[in-house]
Protein backbone atom coordinates (compact mmCIF):
# COMPACT_ATOMS: atom_id res chain seq x y z
CA UNK A 1 0.00 0.00 0.00
CA UNK A 2 2.66 2.46 0.96
CA UNK A 3 4.86 1.61 -1.98
CA UNK A 4 2.90 3.33 -4.69
CA UNK A 5 2.59 6.85 -3.29
CA UNK A 6 6.29 6.69 -2.50
CA UNK A 7 7.12 5.90 -6.05
CA UNK A 8 4.91 8.78 -7.11
CA UNK A 9 6.83 11.08 -4.86
CA UNK A 10 10.11 10.06 -6.43
CA UNK A 11 8.69 10.53 -9.90
CA UNK A 12 7.28 13.89 -8.93
CA UNK A 13 10.66 14.94 -7.59
CA UNK A 14 12.45 13.85 -10.76
CA UNK A 15 9.98 15.79 -12.82
CA UNK A 16 10.54 18.88 -10.72
CA UNK A 17 14.31 18.57 -11.10
CA UNK A 18 13.95 18.08 -14.83
CA UNK A 19 11.77 21.13 -15.29
CA UNK A 20 14.02 23.20 -13.04
CA UNK A 21 17.00 22.18 -15.14
CA UNK A 22 15.28 23.04 -18.41
CA UNK A 23 14.10 26.33 -17.00
CA UNK A 24 17.50 27.30 -15.62
CA UNK A 25 19.21 26.24 -18.83
CA UNK A 26 16.99 28.58 -20.81
CA UNK A 27 17.90 31.34 -18.38
CA UNK A 28 21.61 30.62 -18.63
CA UNK A 29 21.45 30.68 -22.42
CA UNK A 30 20.34 34.28 -22.04
CA UNK A 31 23.53 34.94 -20.08
CA UNK A 32 25.86 33.10 -22.44
CA UNK A 33 27.97 36.14 -23.28
CA UNK A 34 28.49 36.78 -19.61
CA UNK A 35 29.27 33.11 -18.98
CA UNK A 36 31.83 33.13 -21.77
CA UNK A 37 33.65 35.91 -19.97
CA UNK A 38 33.46 34.06 -16.68
CA UNK A 39 35.00 31.07 -18.44
CA UNK A 40 37.70 33.31 -19.84
CA UNK A 41 38.47 34.59 -16.36
CA UNK A 42 39.40 31.06 -15.26
CA UNK A 43 42.84 31.23 -16.83
CA UNK A 44 44.84 31.11 -13.60
CA UNK A 45 46.04 27.50 -14.16
CA UNK A 46 47.43 28.56 -17.54
CA UNK A 47 49.36 31.45 -16.02
CA UNK A 48 50.73 29.07 -13.40
CA UNK A 49 51.64 26.60 -16.12
CA UNK A 50 53.69 29.35 -17.72
CA UNK A 51 55.56 29.99 -14.48
CA UNK A 52 56.16 26.37 -13.52
CA UNK A 53 57.29 25.46 -17.02
CA UNK A 54 60.34 27.70 -16.50
CA UNK A 55 61.40 25.98 -13.26
CA UNK A 56 62.86 22.61 -12.35
CA UNK A 57 59.60 21.43 -10.91
CA UNK A 58 60.30 17.80 -11.78
CA UNK A 59 62.94 17.77 -9.01
CA UNK A 60 60.25 18.50 -6.46
CA UNK A 61 57.80 15.85 -7.52
CA UNK A 62 58.26 12.21 -6.65
CA UNK A 63 55.28 11.15 -8.74
CA UNK A 64 56.57 9.12 -11.66
CA UNK A 65 55.71 10.34 -15.12
CA UNK A 66 54.33 13.62 -13.86
CA UNK A 67 53.39 15.77 -16.82
CA UNK A 68 53.22 19.46 -15.96
CA UNK A 69 51.35 20.63 -19.04
CA UNK A 70 48.76 17.91 -18.71
CA UNK A 71 48.29 18.66 -15.04
CA UNK A 72 47.58 22.38 -15.46
CA UNK A 73 45.48 21.93 -18.59
CA UNK A 74 43.41 19.38 -16.66
CA UNK A 75 43.23 21.74 -13.69
CA UNK A 76 41.96 24.40 -16.08
CA UNK A 77 39.15 22.12 -17.26
CA UNK A 78 38.24 20.93 -13.75
CA UNK A 79 38.14 24.52 -12.49
CA UNK A 80 35.79 25.49 -15.32
CA UNK A 81 33.22 22.97 -14.17
CA UNK A 82 33.47 23.44 -10.43
CA UNK A 83 32.62 27.13 -10.20
CA UNK A 84 30.23 28.00 -7.38
CA UNK A 85 28.49 31.29 -6.55
CA UNK A 86 25.64 30.07 -4.38
CA UNK A 87 26.36 32.36 -1.41
CA UNK A 88 26.08 35.36 -3.65
CA UNK A 89 22.77 34.17 -5.17
CA UNK A 90 21.32 33.24 -1.83
CA UNK A 91 22.17 36.57 -0.28
CA UNK A 92 20.73 38.41 -3.26
CA UNK A 93 17.49 36.45 -2.96
CA UNK A 94 17.21 37.32 0.73
CA UNK A 95 17.98 41.01 0.17
CA UNK A 96 15.55 41.27 -2.75
CA UNK A 97 12.83 39.63 -0.68
CA UNK A 98 12.54 36.60 -2.93
CA UNK A 99 13.18 34.12 -0.15
CA UNK A 100 9.68 34.09 1.34
CA UNK A 101 7.92 33.09 -1.89
CA UNK A 102 10.60 30.44 -2.46
CA UNK A 103 10.01 29.03 1.02
CA UNK A 104 6.35 28.55 0.18
CA UNK A 105 7.20 26.23 -2.69
CA UNK A 106 7.19 22.51 -2.01
CA UNK A 107 10.68 21.97 -3.46
CA UNK A 108 13.62 22.74 -1.17
CA UNK A 109 15.43 25.86 -2.29
CA UNK A 110 18.68 23.90 -2.42
CA UNK A 111 17.59 22.24 -5.68
CA UNK A 112 16.90 25.52 -7.35
CA UNK A 113 20.49 26.69 -6.87
CA UNK A 114 21.98 23.28 -7.53
CA UNK A 115 20.19 22.94 -10.87
CA UNK A 116 21.05 26.50 -11.80
CA UNK A 117 24.75 25.74 -11.29
CA UNK A 118 24.49 22.58 -13.36
CA UNK A 119 22.66 24.48 -16.08
CA UNK A 120 25.47 27.02 -16.14
CA UNK A 121 28.01 24.23 -16.58
CA UNK A 122 26.08 22.83 -19.50
CA UNK A 123 26.13 26.29 -21.07
CA UNK A 124 29.88 26.36 -20.52
CA UNK A 125 30.59 23.10 -22.39
CA UNK A 126 30.82 24.58 -25.91
CA UNK A 127 32.71 27.63 -24.62
CA UNK A 128 35.31 25.49 -22.86
CA UNK A 129 35.53 23.22 -25.89
CA UNK A 130 36.35 26.23 -28.03
CA UNK A 131 38.96 27.40 -25.54
CA UNK A 132 40.59 23.96 -25.55
CA UNK A 133 40.68 24.03 -29.34
CA UNK A 134 42.43 27.39 -29.28
CA UNK A 135 44.85 26.12 -26.63
CA UNK A 136 45.67 23.09 -28.74
CA UNK A 137 46.80 25.44 -31.48
CA UNK A 138 48.76 27.70 -29.13
CA UNK A 139 50.34 24.81 -27.22
CA UNK A 140 50.94 22.09 -29.80
CA UNK A 141 52.21 18.67 -28.73
CA UNK A 142 50.76 19.05 -25.26
CA UNK A 143 47.45 17.38 -25.91
CA UNK A 144 46.50 13.81 -25.31
CA UNK A 145 43.40 11.76 -25.81
CA UNK A 146 42.11 10.11 -22.63
CA UNK A 147 40.39 6.74 -22.97
CA UNK A 148 36.64 6.82 -23.23
CA UNK A 149 36.15 5.09 -19.87
CA UNK A 150 38.61 7.48 -18.26
CA UNK A 151 36.67 10.38 -19.66
CA UNK A 152 33.39 9.07 -18.28
CA UNK A 153 35.00 8.44 -14.91
CA UNK A 154 36.56 11.92 -14.86
CA UNK A 155 33.24 13.54 -15.74
CA UNK A 156 31.66 11.71 -12.83
CA UNK A 157 34.48 12.73 -10.48
CA UNK A 158 34.32 16.37 -11.59
CA UNK A 159 30.60 16.34 -10.97
CA UNK A 160 31.19 14.87 -7.52
CA UNK A 161 33.88 17.46 -6.80
CA UNK A 162 31.54 20.22 -7.92
CA UNK A 163 28.85 18.86 -5.61
CA UNK A 164 31.21 18.90 -2.62
CA UNK A 165 32.35 22.42 -3.39
CA UNK A 166 28.74 23.46 -3.79
CA UNK A 167 27.92 21.88 -0.43
CA UNK A 168 30.75 23.78 1.28
CA UNK A 169 29.42 27.05 -0.04
CA UNK A 170 25.83 26.11 0.67
CA UNK A 171 26.71 25.37 4.29
CA UNK A 172 28.37 28.78 4.60
CA UNK A 173 25.49 30.42 2.74
CA UNK A 174 23.34 29.61 5.74
CA UNK A 175 25.10 32.41 7.60
CA UNK A 176 23.10 34.80 5.41
CA UNK A 177 20.20 34.11 7.73
CA UNK A 178 22.06 35.79 10.57
CA UNK A 179 24.47 38.32 9.12
CA UNK A 180 24.30 40.98 6.44
CA UNK A 181 26.69 40.90 3.52
CA UNK A 182 27.64 37.28 4.03
CA UNK A 183 28.75 37.19 0.41
CA UNK A 184 32.19 38.39 1.47
CA UNK A 185 32.58 34.90 2.94
CA UNK A 186 32.70 33.73 -0.66
CA UNK A 187 35.96 35.65 -1.01
CA UNK A 188 37.28 34.03 2.13
CA UNK A 189 36.45 30.54 0.92
CA UNK A 190 38.42 31.18 -2.23
CA UNK A 191 41.69 31.38 -0.32
CA UNK A 192 42.02 27.80 0.94
CA UNK A 193 40.68 26.68 -2.41
CA UNK A 194 43.34 28.67 -4.21
CA UNK A 195 46.27 27.31 -2.24
CA UNK A 196 45.15 23.88 -1.01
CA UNK A 197 43.37 22.53 -4.07
CA UNK A 198 46.40 22.37 -6.30
CA UNK A 199 45.23 25.17 -8.54
CA UNK A 200 48.42 27.23 -8.36
CA UNK A 201 50.90 24.46 -7.56
CA UNK A 202 50.62 20.67 -7.68
CA UNK A 203 50.17 19.39 -4.13
CA UNK A 204 53.09 17.02 -4.66
CA UNK A 205 55.42 20.02 -4.63
CA UNK A 206 54.32 20.90 -1.09
CA UNK A 207 56.49 20.02 1.91
CA UNK A 208 55.24 16.82 3.60
CA UNK A 209 53.75 18.55 6.66
CA UNK A 210 51.77 21.04 4.62
CA UNK A 211 50.43 18.53 2.14
CA UNK A 212 49.31 16.41 5.11
CA UNK A 213 47.33 19.38 6.41
CA UNK A 214 45.92 20.01 2.94
CA UNK A 215 44.67 16.44 2.68
CA UNK A 216 42.71 16.91 5.92
CA UNK A 217 40.59 19.50 4.12
CA UNK A 218 38.27 18.66 1.23
CA UNK A 219 40.19 20.94 -1.14
CA UNK A 220 42.76 18.60 -2.76
CA UNK A 221 39.93 16.26 -3.70
CA UNK A 222 38.11 19.07 -5.46
CA UNK A 223 40.78 19.85 -8.00
CA UNK A 224 44.04 17.98 -7.65
CA UNK A 225 42.40 14.55 -7.71
CA UNK A 226 40.22 15.09 -10.79
CA UNK A 227 43.06 16.91 -12.57
CA UNK A 228 45.51 14.07 -11.92
CA UNK A 229 42.86 11.59 -13.02
CA UNK A 230 42.33 13.45 -16.28
CA UNK A 231 46.08 13.78 -16.83
CA UNK A 232 46.42 10.01 -16.57
CA UNK A 233 48.57 10.25 -13.45
CA UNK A 234 48.50 7.44 -10.98
CA UNK A 235 45.92 8.09 -8.24
CA UNK A 236 43.98 5.90 -5.86
CA UNK A 237 40.59 6.32 -7.49
CA UNK A 238 38.40 4.35 -5.06
CA UNK A 239 39.84 6.00 -1.96
CA UNK A 240 39.53 9.51 -3.36
CA UNK A 241 35.98 8.97 -4.49
CA UNK A 242 35.09 7.57 -1.07
CA UNK A 243 36.52 10.65 0.58
CA UNK A 244 34.57 12.94 -1.75
CA UNK A 245 31.37 11.08 -0.94
CA UNK A 246 32.15 11.31 2.75
CA UNK A 247 32.57 15.09 2.51
CA UNK A 248 29.38 15.44 0.48
CA UNK A 249 27.35 13.54 3.07
CA UNK A 250 28.98 15.29 6.01
CA UNK A 251 28.38 18.74 4.55
CA UNK A 252 24.86 17.81 3.55
CA UNK A 253 24.13 16.91 7.15
CA UNK A 254 25.59 20.13 8.51
CA UNK A 255 23.91 22.38 5.98
CA UNK A 256 20.54 20.67 6.49
CA UNK A 257 20.76 21.33 10.22
CA UNK A 258 21.83 24.93 9.62
CA UNK A 259 19.06 25.39 7.06
CA UNK A 260 16.41 24.28 9.54
CA UNK A 261 17.73 26.62 12.20
CA UNK A 262 18.08 29.44 9.72
CA UNK A 263 14.55 29.15 8.38
CA UNK A 264 13.25 29.14 11.94
CA UNK A 265 15.25 32.27 12.67
CA UNK A 266 14.13 33.89 9.43
CA UNK A 267 10.44 33.23 9.96
CA UNK A 268 10.68 34.28 13.61
CA UNK A 269 12.03 37.64 12.45
CA UNK A 270 8.83 38.04 10.48
CA UNK A 271 10.59 38.74 7.23
Amino acid sequence: MSYKPRQHKVLWFLRVIKSLLINQYALMMEYRAEIALWALSGILPLIMLGLWSQTNIQDLIELQGFNLKRYFLSAFVVRQFTVVWVIFSFEEDIVQGRLSPFLLQPVPLFWRYYTSHIAEQITRVPIVALMIMILSVVLPNSFWLPKFTELILTTFVIFLAFTVRFMIHWAFAMSCFWVERASSIERLLLIPYLFFSGLVAPIDTFPKEISQIAYLTPYPYLLSFPANLLSGHHVNIQLNIMILIFWALFLFLISTLAWKKGVKHFTAMGA
Binding site: L51, I57, L60, I185, L188, I191, F195, T205
Partner: peptide, 30 residues
Protein backbone atom coordinates in the same frame (compact mmCIF):
# COMPACT_ATOMS: atom_id res chain seq x y z
CA UNK B 1 29.37 46.28 8.24
CA UNK B 2 32.05 45.63 10.83
CA UNK B 3 32.21 41.93 10.12
CA UNK B 4 33.62 42.81 6.74
CA UNK B 5 36.69 44.28 8.38
CA UNK B 6 37.50 40.98 10.03
CA UNK B 7 36.81 38.99 6.89
CA UNK B 8 38.95 41.35 4.87
CA UNK B 9 41.85 41.11 7.31
CA UNK B 10 41.72 37.33 7.39
CA UNK B 11 41.45 37.25 3.63
CA UNK B 12 44.43 39.55 3.12
CA UNK B 13 46.57 37.63 5.58
CA UNK B 14 45.51 34.34 4.02
CA UNK B 15 46.43 35.66 0.62
CA UNK B 16 49.76 36.90 1.89
CA UNK B 17 50.76 33.61 3.48
CA UNK B 18 49.48 31.66 0.50
CA UNK B 19 51.50 33.81 -1.89
CA UNK B 20 54.62 33.58 0.25
CA UNK B 21 54.19 29.83 0.39
CA UNK B 22 53.85 29.48 -3.36
CA UNK B 23 56.81 31.77 -3.86
CA UNK B 24 58.88 29.60 -1.50
CA UNK B 25 57.94 26.56 -3.60
CA UNK B 26 59.35 28.26 -6.68
CA UNK B 27 62.59 28.96 -4.86
CA UNK B 28 62.81 25.35 -3.69
CA UNK B 29 63.38 24.36 -7.30
CA UNK B 30 66.17 26.89 -7.80
Amino acid sequence: YQLNMLIELVSVLGNLFGSLFILSLFYKSG
